[in-house]
């Protein structure tokens, strides 16, 4: 086994183990209720902070890092924001964002040719 394969397997192992323990321990071991209001509030906000930090600014280069790809990404991002405000489901929002990014790519490509 070479070094990079070892690194890959160890990384996946660490990922899987940590993720599983976070899910398993509260259900299996932890039976007490959390009392600290600050801890409860902190836990309540974590998912939103995580998803927001992962999305911005990474979403703007999600279709690539050329100027055209950034325009496509921005079109997809805007579409996702608008549809989420309209409270559309996860699948609708995700696929519409892809559609908008693809359409923007076609348009910028067409303009370059013309």
């Amino acid at each position: 086994m070479n070094d990079s394969t070892f690194y890959l397997i160890m990384s996946i192992l660490v990922m899987a183990l940590v993720t599983y323990l976070i899910r398993m321990l509260p259900l299996a071991v932890f039976r007490k209720k959390i009392r600290s209001q600050f801890a409860l509030n902190f836990l309540y906000y974590v998912p939103y902070a995580v998803l927001s930090a992962m999305t911005i600014p990474a979403v703007f280069t999600s279709c690539g890092d050329s100027t055209a790809a950034i325009i496509s990404s921005a079109a997809g991002f805007l579409t996702a924001i608008i549809l989420s405000f309209a409270e559309k489901g996860l699948l609708t929002v995700a696929l519409s964002a892809c559609g908008a990014a693809f359409a923007a790519d076609l348009i910028t490509g067409w303009m370059n040719i013309v």
Binding site: P47, Y48, L51, S52, M54, T55, A58, V59, S62, C63, G64, A69, S72, S73, G76, F77, T79, A80, I81, L83, S84, K88, G89, L90, T92, V93, A94, L95, S96, A97, C98, G99, A101, F102, D105
Partner: peptide
Amino acid sequence: AALGIAIYGMFIAIV
């Protein structure tokens, strides 16, 4: 390339 944005679309729809 266009599919690369799907996962972010899902994150946005959750937040």
